[in-house]
Amino acid sequence: MRCEQCGKADAVVRITRIESGAAPYQLCLCQSCAAKASPHQKKLLEKQSTYDVLLQKLMKHQAVGEFEAGGSVAEVAEEESPLTCPSCGLNFGDYQRTLMLGCPDCYESFSDVLEKDLTRFHRATRHTGSEEHKPSELANLQDRLRDARSELKSALEIEDYERAAFLRDEISNIESRMEELRTGEA
């Protein structure tokens, strides 16, 4: 149905008006007429658009990947094969052509399909060894970044925008620290 105020846009909100000396009545309005009619609706609309922008930014961010500055492989993940490493943007097809992975995270990103190759090469899919391993600060950051990104995704799914905003800042802090370490400007 059309907006009862402007008659142009689709109505998306039903508001009930209660005015003194008159019976309450309902109006079906479009988003912008609703914002004019009610301060509460106005606030909601503003918030909505902020989250839209945030959401878009975050989605794009994830797709382009953190290795963009250092030279990444793929640009956007969505339209291509769903098998794309979120960290470096490498498509699984690129790996199959070259047998070279894009980044350490590719092992997790492609684990299901990669393990077929591992079986073929090594007759095994798991490392066995007693090597002590000391992760660097960079490797630690890498892990934190991966965790923060996956938590952000869940936060957005359950619409916990406050947590999402916090995580967004966290991600950007981790990224700038990684950049410092990589370029030796620490």
């Binding site: 470096c88 690129d94 070259t98 070279m100 992975l101 350490p104 660097s136 490797a139 950051l141 890498q142």
Partner: peptide, 9 residues
């Protein structure tokens, strides 16, 4: 190295 893309790509 952790945190860097592999050399071939």
């Amino acid at each position: 190295l952790g945190g860097f893309p592999f050399a071939p790509h």
